[in-house]
Computed example of a mutant assay.
Amino acid sequence: MASRIHQPTRQRLVALLAADHLDGSGLIQRLRQLRRLEGVATCSAMLHLLTHLELPEDEAEQLLVELNSHRSEVGATLGRDPGLPVAAVDYLSNVRGLLRNPTIVELDELETTERSAVTDSLTGLHNRRYFDSALDIETRRSMRYGLGLSLLLLDLDLFKPINDLHGHRLGDLVLARVGGLLRRAVRDADVACRFGGEEFAVILPETGRLGAFSLGERVRLLVQKAFEEPFEGLAIELSVSGGVATFPRDGETAEMLVERADRAMYLAKKEGRNRIVLYHSERRRFVRFPVRSNARVWLRAGGSSGIEMRPINLSRSGALLSTTGPTRTEGTVELKLRMREREWVVSGKVVRSGRRSLAVRFDRPLPEDCFEGHVRRSVAPRAARS
């Protein structure tokens, strides 16, 4: 039914209704385009928005054509455009007799009502109701047009103790602060929502695993930095953990994406919190990143002084190194990474030796801060074998 149209679509219809530059034929054309794009009964929805009448899509489209024709006739008589809402009231009340005692509502008031119904009052983000509608629409759109789509779920680490120790008022201020940080971090095309409690979600249209992971990292660092200083006069340690799932690789329905992003988020909590984890069905643990073209490492095996090599990709558990030709390096090796004034040395074992590459598995995970400056986080990461 038109009254049950998804909320994001309703907001697009409100925007169309407010577009003064659209004449009758232009409005119908845009409604048809939106119907093809989102697979919903847009003419029925627009008619319901204007009049609260419920009609099938074909009848609603025909009635909208009649309304626009009446709008043109009234405009020619008055010498000015009365607009669709006024023309609709006159036509449906005085010509067709479908409305009795109609009430005209200001479009601004309607938009405010629509917005409040889908907005979380505490954080200013979209609420769970809007999230469910938007994710369903974006999933179907991605399926229809073969577009990328990712979902990022975020959860504040150890938030309950903040509430218990300092009270719900401070907890609400923390949530509002995080909501503001999230709004700053996302693009206009992204849909940032309060998922529930201390959980947040971001729908990322036309975005792969890389973009979603990069956004998650950006939000994580923003939250971490924002609470390094006293908040409301109190020292609060706050971080965020997140999980990423991508369509269609990780799930082909909205429900599957939520379930798998949630599973990845749980893994982030389990591995120590304050991190973003990609969902993966394989036996994988750490994200593998492409490496900056100017990055270099030094490999030492046995009693050698060390060979400078270029890393192809790097994870906390290992590295793939580029070689100029076949190499006989095998067994235990030592890898040195240097960035600015800092240096990291890690031991490991050669697990694969090819014609132009060498794979090393580290004996212990590489520190997270070693990645800054070495890897390209704006290129799609992969999950590395543990």
Score class of each variant (00 low, 15 high):
residue 251 G to R: 03
residue 3 S to P: 00
residue 341 E to D: 15
residue 8 P to R: 02
residue 23 D to R: 08
residue 256 M to L: 15
residue 372 E to R: 10
residue 189 A to I: 14
residue 302 G to T: 05
residue 31 L to W: 04
residue 61 E to K: 09
residue 323 T to W: 11
residue 117 A to E: 12
residue 287 V to F: 01
residue 188 D to M: 05
residue 110 L to P: 00
residue 192 A to V: 10
residue 213 F to K: 09
residue 293 S to L: 13
residue 374 H to C: 02
residue 111 E to Q: 11
residue 383 A to H: 06
residue 173 L to Y: 03
residue 116 S to Q: 12
residue 324 T to P: 08
residue 350 V to W: 07
residue 43 C to N: 12
residue 101 N to R: 15
residue 47 L to C: 04
residue 170 L to E: 10
residue 249 R to N: 12
residue 266 Y to K: 05
residue 143 M to N: 10
residue 209 R to Q: 11
residue 291 V to T: 14
residue 250 D to K: 02
residue 284 R to Y: 06
residue 157 D to E: 06
residue 99 L to T: 10
residue 316 R to A: 15
residue 252 E to V: 15
residue 151 L to N: 01
residue 6 H to P: 11
residue 88 A to C: 01
residue 220 R to V: 03
residue 105 V to T: 13
residue 162 I to W: 09
residue 161 P to H: 03
residue 107 L to Q: 04
residue 80 R to M: 04
residue 192 A to Q: 12
residue 31 L to P: 04
residue 133 S to A: 13
residue 252 E to S: 14
residue 350 V to N: 04
residue 57 E to L: 12
residue 240 V to Q: 11
residue 265 M to D: 02
residue 203 I to R: 04
residue 232 E to D: 11
residue 82 P to I: 02
residue 277 V to T: 14
residue 186 V to G: 10
residue 268 A to L: 03
residue 373 G to F: 01
residue 90 D to F: 01
residue 120 D to K: 10
residue 47 L to M: 09
residue 247 F to C: 06
residue 53 L to I: 10
residue 32 R to T: 11
residue 218 R to N: 14
residue 88 A to L: 06
residue 270 K to S: 13
residue 386 S to H: 09
residue 3 S to H: 04
residue 54 E to W: 07
residue 3 S to G: 10
residue 238 L to R: 07
residue 25 S to M: 10
residue 175 L to P: 05
residue 288 R to L: 15
residue 360 V to K: 12
residue 182 L to P: 07
residue 258 V to H: 02
residue 234 L to E: 13
residue 234 L to V: 15
residue 186 V to D: 09
residue 149 L to H: 05
residue 268 A to H: 07
residue 79 G to E: 07
residue 135 L to Q: 01
residue 283 R to S: 15
residue 237 E to G: 12
residue 6 H to C: 03
residue 141 R to D: 01
residue 27 L to V: 10
residue 322 S to T: 02
residue 365 P to D: 12
residue 3 S to M: 06
residue 381 P to Q: 11
residue 70 H to K: 03
residue 67 L to N: 03
residue 128 R to V: 00
residue 172 D to L: 14
residue 121 S to D: 13
residue 374 H to S: 08
residue 268 A to M: 02
residue 261 A to L: 04
residue 347 S to R: 14
residue 191 V to R: 08
residue 239 S to I: 00
residue 377 R to S: 14
residue 148 G to V: 01
residue 93 S to P: 02
residue 99 L to E: 13
residue 257 L to W: 05
residue 258 V to C: 02
residue 10 R to G: 01
residue 59 E to P: 00
residue 238 L to K: 09
residue 349 K to D: 09
residue 228 E to H: 14
residue 210 L to K: 15
residue 44 S to Q: 05
residue 298 W to G: 05
residue 325 G to Y: 07
residue 378 S to G: 15
residue 316 R to P: 07
residue 259 E to V: 03
residue 38 E to V: 00
residue 249 R to L: 14
residue 60 A to M: 08
residue 153 L to Y: 08
residue 336 K to D: 07
residue 212 A to M: 04
residue 251 G to T: 10
residue 70 H to D: 01
residue 214 S to L: 13
residue 318 G to R: 13
residue 253 T to W: 08
residue 331 G to M: 05
residue 112 T to S: 12
residue 181 L to C: 02
residue 351 V to Y: 05
residue 285 R to S: 13
